[in-house]
Design a protein around this nucleic acid. Structure first.
Lengths: 94, 94
DNA sequence: ATATTTAGTTTATTTTATAAACTTATTTAT
DNA sequence: ATAAATAAGTTTATAAAATAAACTAAATAT
């Protein structure tokens, strides 16, 4: 029987965010926005969901006078991502 | 930049159906229902969507007196599945 | 001083997934 | 023979999700 896929990760945008974050220490809001090609609103919402689940950590600060949102993946996030990938492999073979 | 994921395939249930169909010649409605652990209604809807996109072919017949719905993946479906898997690999690494 | 840009958030809309209810015919039990 | 239960689905309604549009507030450029 096929494993369930974590619905939080089985979303193109959230998966994209996680995929970027897993390979870097941290990333800024605007960087994620550009790399995923999503709108700011969409990113904002999805980041909140990931943070709510403690898959990522969001730090709000300022760069000079402008707001700066920095995100990083948590241990829980890494684990969830890895489990998602494993489950997915049942679906896509290998 | 991350590739887009075919939204028709990026759905747990539809992906599960396609994953089953890609490795067999054809499968019956009830078989897919059991393997994916989905409700009949849900399966019915998702099969229709896949058929609408010509990713699968649905043949309705009878076994004895009872209706029998048999599904098989099409060439287009195989191609779409393969492309989906390739795009996905950008997200999950390797 | 006004307009534009930056960096977001909040709210609203659309789409999607899912389940519940229904249909039709067929067995099985009484 | 009749009623109840099961099979194999479909249709419709509900819930959840994704996405975009509208908005905010401050900073910079004209």
């Amino acid at each position: 029987m096929l494993k369930d896929l974590d619905p939080l990760l089985h979303s193109q945008l959230r998966l994209g965010i996680m995929s970027l974050l897993i390979s870097m220490d941290s990333a800024e809001f605007t960087y994620l926005k550009e790399k995923t090609n999503a709108t700011a609103g969409n990113i904002s919402v999805q980041l909140d969901k990931l943070a709510e689940a403690n898959y990522i950590e969001i730090k709000k600060s300022f760069r000079g006078k402008r707001p700066l949102t920095t995100c990083s993946i948590t241990k829980k996030g890494i684990k969830a991502f890895e489990e998602y990938v494993n489950a997915l492999k049942e679906y896509i073979g290998k």
